[in-house]
Structures are given as structure tokens and as C-alpha cells.
């Protein structure tokens, strides 16, 4: 019976009642995601909420290159971005820190020196959202992102 509560308990309950109307949301404890989706919305039960084992590098390696690019550019500062970058590296993509784009050799470079390599490359243009080819491109090694991601 509610009337057995003390005044303090009744007061706490009324405050709690109001607080429960504006509960914390998951995004309250997360960094802001500028590109991310909005808050949670009710979805039917038959939509799976998460994929099993999706937090492993193996899972990311099975994703298409374009998916990895999407994760890399749209989920910045997350574990998923880290895994996407790792997976892209295993697929021989290299990140150019000035253009902020991923490059892959299209053929063996025509020239390789200590400071750069030159040849034909495929790169992912995040503005047009497509892969493009560039001939006679000079990849300066000082722009090569070569941090060990382990």
C-alpha cells in the first residue's frame, strides 16, 4: 500500500515519475555523430538489431570495399572505423593523409624512390562516392599513413 510510504519516499516517487518521462537516451553517453542516424525508432521484431560477431576484424574483411569506405568516412572516431581502416589495409589500400583518400596501386609503380612512388592508382573519391583511376600519380611517402594499427 502506497500510503505506508514516508513523506520523503512519496516525494522521491513523484520526482522519479517525472524523470521517467525524459529518460537518458543511448546517444547521451556517446560522442556526437555528425553523419549518424537519428535516435532509436521502434522497428518490427523481425529486423535483426545486430549481426553476430560483428566486432571482429574477420567480419570487416568480409565487407565490400565500398562498405568499408562508408564506415571509414561516416563513423569517425569509432571502433568500427578502426576495423574498417585495418581491413582496407589488408586489401592493399593505403591512406593519403593530405588528400584524405584511400589509394591502391593499379599496376606496379613506374618509379620507386626512398621518398615517393609514381604510377597508375585507383582511389576512392569520397565526394563523388566512386572509385576513380589516376595515371602518373606521385604518392609521396610523407603523406602515407603508416601507423601500425595493431
Amino acid at each position: 500500500p502506497q500510503n505506508s510510504f514516508t513523506e520523503d519516499q512519496k516525494h522521491a516517487l513523484s520526482i522519479l515519475e517525472v524523470a521517467s518521462k525524459h529518460l537518458p537516451k543511448p546517444m547521451d553517453s556517446l560522442k556526437i555523430r555528425y553523419n549518424g542516424p537519428g535516435g532509436p525508432a521502434p522497428t518490427p521484431d523481425y529486423y535483426p538489431a545486430t549481426a553476430p560477431n560483428c566486432n571482429t576484424i574477420e567480419f570487416f574483411q568480409r565487407l565490400s570495399t565500398e562498405t568499408l569506405f562508408f564506415i571509414f568516412y561516416f563513423l569517425q572516431g569509432t571502433k568500427a572505423q578502426y576495423y574498417a581502416a585495418k581491413a582496407l589495409k589488408t586489401k592493399s589500400w593505403r591512406f593519403h593523409t593530405m588528400f584524405m583518400m584511400w589509394f591502391q596501386r593499379h599496376e606496379e609503380p613506374k618509379t620507386i624512390t626512398d621518398d615517393f612512388e609514381q604510377g597508375t592508382y585507383v582511389y576512392f573519391d569520397f565526394e563523388r562516392w566512386m572509385q576513380r583511376k589516376k595515371e602518373g600519380f606521385t604518392f609521396e611517402y610523407k603523406y602515407l599513413e603508416d601507423k601500425d594499427l595493431n
Binding site: 500500500p1 502506497q2 505506508s4 510510504f5 519516499q9 522521491a12 516517487l13 522519479l16 515519475e17 521517467s20
Partner: peptide
């Protein structure tokens, strides 16, 4: 904090949540 509320058989919704 919860004890006096949980002792009641009928739980108020905000208590159930907590």
C-alpha cells in the same frame, strides 16, 4: 533506495524501470 518501494507488491512504473 529501492528497498521500501520493492517491499510493496504493486510496483509503480518508474520503480519497475529502475
Amino acid at each position: 533506495f529501492l528497498a521500501p518501494f520493492l517491499r510493496n507488491v504493486e510496483l509503480a512504473a518508474p520503480i519497475q524501470l529502475l
